[in-house]
Structures are given as structure tokens and as C-alpha cells.
């Protein structure tokens, strides 16, 4: 709509704070009797990059997987833009599709499809879910592969690519669906350090372009320098969150400083 056509008095009042793009409200997740997430509250605005750190088993992956409903939360609410998902009410299939369409995810183990070429890996879902023609999809995939520096691998099978290359392909595959939010679950943990760097470089570029990102990571340097905010989890709870520099250099909690020390000494 042309903004000029809106009469002035009908302009809604500008909210004092930017509304959250993603909001998690007292999220709980239980596997049977075992509580993995406990009262998680979190919000982020568009274009923010948030790092989630914490000891293994603290529920970081589960939290990411609850956001895109790979694991349905037991209790609580997830809002993404105008989507409002309450765990208490069964989720409409249309809402699930809408949610997933907006969220891209990158896994620790890449999870590329081994029977498809690199190009096909990136194109498949574009054709199947966005209704693009094979040609449009392939053209878009080539742009994205170019962007992650792997256009020359388009015709190869994933098994012939290094781990770092596979992860960059997985990022291209997720970006091909034009998500508004990208979730990364320890994207470099399965990689040798130098291969991890090429992946981190791609992620840093993506962050620079304004992509909203939540990154579960053990890369303290990435958390401190690329992310805007750091969230620390332990035993299914968020025990500290704040601007990266503050959390990483002057954490408020003893527990967090101990954790940071342990990771840095590794």
C-alpha cells in the first residue's frame, strides 16, 4: 500500500520499543519425566545475532529444536512475527509450515542428502516447497554456492566434499528457502579448526548482511566478536544473558565465569 494514501490521523502510534521478532515465553520441554528446558524466556529483534553457550546437556539443541518445532515444547509460547504458537493448543499444519518456512536450520552433522549432487541438494526444496521451476532453482542455487565459494562443486556428490565444504553447502541449502531466521546448532563442532574457520567466515558475512541468527556454539571468539548477544544455559535454564562483551568478559554469575574459563583452557 502506498504510505501516502494513509490519512495522518489513522497512523498507529509508534511503539516505544521495537516489537520482538522472536519471543519465547516460559518454554518448558520434558522428555517423559525428565525436564530438559525449564521456564525459558527469550526475545530477539530482527537482524540480531545471538550466541547460545553452555555445557553439553544443558538443553541448547533442544531449545533450537523447540523453536522450529522439531521437538514440540511441552509448555509455553513461541511468537515469530505475527505467528503465535501456544504449546497448550494443537498446532495447525498451516502454522507449522509457515513457521518452518521462515526458519532455516544448520546441523552439527550437516545432513546433506548423500544421493543428490551438491546443486540438487540446494535446489530440491526450492522446487518442492517454493514451487520454483528446476531452472529458476538451479540458477538461485548457483548464486548461493558462488556466495559460499563452492560453485565449482555443484556437480559433485557431498561425500567428495570436505566437512567444511559440506557445512557451507548446508548453509546455502537453508538460505535457498529465504528464511528470516537462521538456527545453527554447533555448526563447526564436527570440523577441524581450519575447516571450521571457513564456515565461521560465511556465518560472519551472513550476520553482516543483517540475517537474524541464533548460534549454539563453543567458538568463544565467534560468540564474543560476531554475536550481539550471548545467552548462557545450564541445566535447562538460561542462567545469564546480555551483550556479548559483558557476558564474555564480566559475567555476573560465578558459574558462567567458571564455564568460560574451562572452555578457554581447553
Amino acid at each position: 500500500m502506498n504510505p501516502m494514501s494513509i490519512p495522518l490521523r489513522q497512523v498507529p502510534p509508534v511503539p516505544a520499543v521495537k516489537p520482538a521478532f522472536l519471543r519465547l515465553e516460559s518454554l518448558y520441554k520434558q522428555f517423559g519425566k525428565y525436564e530438559v528446558l525449564h521456564d525459558v524466556n527469550f526475545e530477539m529483534s530482527k537482524g540480531e545475532v545471538v550466541a547460545i553457550i553452555g555445557p553439553s546437556g544443558s538443553g541448547k539443541s533442544t531449545l533450537l529444536r523447540c523453536i522450529n518445532q522439531l521437538e514440540p515444547p511441552t509448555r509455553g509460547r513461541i511468537r515469530l512475527d505475527e505467528l503465535d504458537i501456544d504449546a497448550a493448543t494443537p498446532m495447525a499444519r498451516a502454522d507449522l509450515l509457515k513457521l518452518r518456512r521462515r526458519i532455516g536450520m544448520v546441523f552439527q552433522s550437516f545432513n546433506l542428502f548423500p544421493h543428490l549432487t551438491v546443486l540438487r541438494n540446494v535446489s530440491l526444496a526450492q522446487v518442492r516447497t517454493l514451487g520454483r521451476s528446476e531452472r529458476e532453482a538451479d540458477a538461485r542455487s548457483m548464486q548461493l554456492l558462488e556466495r559460499v565459494g563452492l560453485a565449482d562443486k555443484a556437480g559433485h556428490y557431498p561425500a567428495r566434499c570436505s566437512g567444511g565444504q559440506q557445512q557451507r553447502i548446508a548453509i546455502a541449502r537453508a538460505l535457498a528457502l529465504e528464511p528470516q531466521l537462521m538456527l545453527f546448532d554447533e555448526p563447526t563442532s564436527a570440523l577441524d579448526p581450519e575447516l571450521g574457520l571457513e564456515v565461521l567466515a560465511v556465518m560472519k558475512e551472513l550476520a553482516g548482511e543483517g540475517m537474524s541468527m541464533i548460534v549454539v556454539t563453543h567458538e568463544m571468539h565467534f560468540a564474543e566478536t560476531v554475536s550481539d548477544r550471548v545467552v548462557v544455559m545450564a541445566e535447562g535454564r538460561i542462567i545469564e544473558q546480555g551483550p556479548s562483551a559483558q557476558v564474555m568478559r564480566q559475567p555476573r554469575h560465578e558459574r558462567v565465569s567458571k564455564f568460560l574459563q574451562a572452555v578457554r583452557n581447553r
Binding site: 518452518r100 544421493h115 516447497t129
Partner: peptide, 25 residues
Amino acid sequence: DGQYEAAHVLNLSAPQRFFDVVLPQ
């Protein structure tokens, strides 16, 4: 499991998950 998870996250439907991802493997 990661194959199914990737297919879910890419929003592939159940028949697509089966015919595009599972069956060929």
C-alpha cells in the same frame, strides 16, 4: 535421523520425504 530432520526443516511433505530422501537411500 539427521536425514529426516533436514527434510522436515526444509518443509518437505511426507510423500516428498519418502520419495526424494528416504527411498533412494
